[in-house]
Amino acid sequence: MNIMECKNIQLIKNDQTILHDISFSIEAGDSICILGPSGSGKSSLFRLLNMLITPNQGEIIYRNKHLQEYAPTELRRKVSYVLQKPYLFGSKVEENLLYPYQLLNQKPNLHEIDNYLTQVNLSTAILQKKNTALSGGEQQRIALIRSLLIKPEIILLDEVTAALDEENTLLLEKLILNEQQNHNIALLFITHNNSQAKRLAKKILYLKAGRMDFFVNATDYFFNTGGNDE
C-alpha cells in the first residue's frame, strides 16, 4: 500500500533547476536507496519530503492528503529526516533523548530509551554524558534514536553512516532493520556505500543531474550492474 507519492516534482533554487519531474511512490515498510553523484539533488529530495522546502511544481501526497494540508509539525513527526551531521543540541545526551517526549507531550519512557540504547551497544550511563564527550559514531546513534522516539512512519537517512567505521555502520543498520521489522516503517536512505545499499535496499532510485534516471528493484539493479555503478 502506498503511503507517500511524489508526482512530477520540480524544484528550482536561485534560477537553477535542482530536481526535474520526479515521480515515485513509497509503500509501508519500504526500503528505498537513493543513489546518484554528488549534487544530483538527493538531499533536496529529502528536504522536500520532510517539508523543509516546498516544490515549485508537482505534488507530494502522504496518506491521501497533500503535504500542505498537514500541519508541518504533524507531517515531520510522521516523515522524520536524519541529517548526515549528527547535530546534538543542549549540553547533555539526556536532553536529546527526552526532547521527543517533550514534543509529543508524553511522559518520558526510560524503558524505551534503554531498549534503543541496548540495541546499539550503549548503556543508560551515556545519558549523563556531555554531547562533546561522544565519538562521531555515538553521536550518530543518539541522533537516530532521537528520531525513532518520535515514532515516524517514514524515516529519511541522509548518509548517516558516511563518517562511521564498519562496526558503527553495522550497529546503525541493525537498529534500522529491527525498527522496520517491529514497526513496519518505510526507510529511504542516501548512501555512497554499495555494500550498504545491497544489505538494506529493496528498491533503488537513481538520480542524475536532478532527473530520475531509474527506479527499480534492488535485485534487478545489482544483477544488471553487478553493483559497480555507484
Binding site: 523543509l52 508541518p72 515531520r76 541529517l83 547535530y87 543540541f89 541522533a143 528520531s147 518520535i150
Partner: peptide, 13 residues
C-alpha cells in the same frame, strides 16, 4: 541554522 533545522525535522514548532 543546523540546530533549528534538526528540531524542525523532529516536528518541533
Amino acid at each position: 541554522k543546523d540546530e533549528i533545522e534538526v528540531k524542525l525535522c523532529l516536528g518541533a514548532p
